[in-house]
Write a protein that binds this DNA or RNA. Structure first.
Length: 505
RNA sequence: GUCUUGUUAGCUCAGCUGGUAGAGCACGUCACUUUUAAUGAUGUGGCCGAUGGUUCGAAUCCAUCACAGGACACCA
């Protein structure tokens, strides 16, 4: 039984006593007429008054008790609502007879949610407070809160019981406020540019648009398996074929892969597609987007991230091959052929999966020697065609694509390219991916012939981009684990029953 | 998936090379009408993550498992 804890039993008893005395411990008769933040702002003038009070003003606030100091016939209570923390002064003689002694002192405690009416005053120590004239219990908390000073620090509790984390740690609430603002600003930015927000399927017959292993589910009525989407790309491009010229989608993707500080099985991205534009236009709009975010979030353009400082006014642009030598320190001659890369990797005591092609090996060199060194925002361009199966080839050099990835603080934040709209080329790219799949690359793209057919009707020249929202928020909030920017990060089940149920299914 | 560290009261943590479990907060009782993690006195609270093993004796040593953190691998 989950309520067999002694402290919980005590609190259940207190709730009962409150109820018996006519104080509903789960009342919804709320008369709050201001938030704590507003109260503190509106009454900031009280400190300048001679008597430090104004008994003519009256406010009703509500919130959760975070601290409680009973000092005989008077008490101080700190309550918190979403907007802030307020000190309440509760004196016996200002409340109905015996309420203070029999109800407040005995049955009200930290964690309870209360409503208090009264007038503003400033205490001897100079804190703007509220002098209580009425006191109502709104919600009795029967589980005790964590320790008042240290709070909860155990990450497992913080993630599994996020509500406790949010109650105890106001900076966590702030992080999620920022996250919400980022999503809403992103939406507004693209809407203002004339983009149309769309919703495409989460359940795909073919998991396409990225290199990743999908989750599988089953549709009973149709008797077929569906894949949770790994990316919305191929659907969004079908919409461009259909004649929408600028679309975006902000939503979840699902990838059946490992979990760590930068990976959660479900994560949020924005993907946007823009007809009659190229990846060069995307570089410009990306810079503009960051400027917009920083302005509206009031962030300094030199932003600390852990031990690093990222200068968001210093966008760089460098082709991938050039970055290998200039940033990665890889000799020019060790980047050009399969054999030279393999022997270079060998000289560094590194091994790769056998059978990799030139483009894949160049990607390996980049991941190994360049990526973590890209601190200020850097667009890496000219990706090899082998690792860009949905991107348009460069007209000058068909071995590379019109693509970039944006790296900040050593992490990939965005992936973008001029879209491949040649259906014959797209078909052959899929065929190459199919061969890779047959050769054991279980993350190679799936053939999507319906998508190729869509392209065959003609997709206007288009540029498209995906931005990882979670990682972006990590960057902007100086968080270093994706779990700290997800309200409910993926966790393994704790008790055996949950595991059993899953096995039975 | 691999390596590594952790899991002791509701929470934050002690508990050394094995000898029947400790503090602070919270909670109970008492005192206290301007405190700031209030204070003083006093008391309650534990299957020491789970299962096996070694031992006269295990929170402590060993093994396995579960969950978590970190690092690596794969990926965004």
């Amino acid at each position: 039984m989950i309520f067999d804890n002694k402290f919980i039993q005590q609190r259940i008893e207190k709730a009962k006593l409150l109820k018996e005395a006519g104080h509903n411990p789960y009342s919804n008769d709320c008369k709050r007429n201001t938030t704590i933040e507003k109260y503190l702002n509106v009454n900031s003038d009280i400190a300048d008054r001679e008597d430090k009070r104004d008994e003519k003003r009256h406010y009703t606030v509500a919130g959760r008790i975070k601290l409680l100091r009973v000092m005989g016939k008077a008490s101080f209570v700190k309550i918190e609502d979403e907007s802030g923390m307020l000190q309440i002064y509760v004196a016996r003689d200002n409340l109905p007879e015996d309420f203070y002694n029999d109800m407040f002192k005995k049955n009200i405690e930290v964690g309870d949610i209360i409503e208090v009416g009264g007038y503003p005053f400033v205490t001897g120590k100079g804190e703007l407070s509220l002098h209580a004239e009425s006191f109502t219990i709104l919600t009795k908390a029967i589980s005790p809160l964590p320790e008042k000073f240290h709070g909860v620090t155990d990450k497992e509790i913080r993630y599994r019981k996020r509500y406790l984390d949010l109650i105890m740690n106001s900076e966590v609430r702030k992080t999620f406020h920022t996250r919400s603002k980022v999503v809403s600003l992103t939406r507004r930015f693209f809407e203002d540019k004339g983009f149309l927000e769309v919703e495409t399927p989460m359940m795909h017959p073919i998991a396409g648009g990225a290199n990743a292993k999908p989750f599988v589910t089953h549709h009973n009525a149709l008797g077929i398996d569906r894949f949770l989407r790994i990316a919305p790309e191929l659907y969004l491009k079908r919409l461009i074929v259909g004649g929408f010229e600028a679309v975006f989608e902000i939503n979840r993707n699902f990838r059946n892969e490992g979990m760590d500080a930068t990976h959660n099985p479900e994560f949020t991205s924005i993907e946007f597609y823009w007809a009659y534009k190229t990846y060069k236009d995307l570089i410009e709009i990306t810079k503009e987007y960051f400027k917009y975010l920083f302005e509206h979030l009031n962030l300094p353009t030199r932003l600390p991230y852990g031990d690093l400082e990222v200068d968001f006014e210093n966008f760089q642009e460098i082709p991938l091959i050039e970055s290998l030598t200039k940033i990665g320190g890889v000799p020019v001659e060790s980047c050009k052929t399969i054999d030279s890369i393999l022997s270079y990797l060998k000289s560094k005591n590194m091994t790769v999966k056998p059978g990799m092609n030139l483009g894949q090996l160049q990607g390996e060199l980049f991941d190994e020697f360049v990526e973590e060194k890209l601190i200020d925002p850097t667009f890496i361009t000219e990706y090899p065609v082998e690792i860009s199966p949905l991107a348009r080839r460069s007209d000058e050099n068909p071995a590379i694509t019109e693509r970039f990835e944006l790296f900040i603080a050593g992490r990939e934040i965005a992936n973008a390219f001029s879209e491949l709209n040649d259906p014959i080329d797209q078909l052959s790219r899929f065929e190459v991916q199919m061969k890779a799949k047959d050769n054991g690359d279980d993350e190679a793209h799936e053939m999507d012939s319906d998508f190729v057919e869509a392209l065959s009707y003609g997709m206007a020249p288009t540029a498209g981009q995906g931005i990882g929202i979670d990682r972006l928020v990590m960057l902007l909030t100086n968080e270093h684990s994706i779990r700290d920017v997800l309200l409910f990060p993926a966790m393994k089940p704790i008790n055996n029953e949950e595991i059993k149920t899953q096995e039975e299914e």
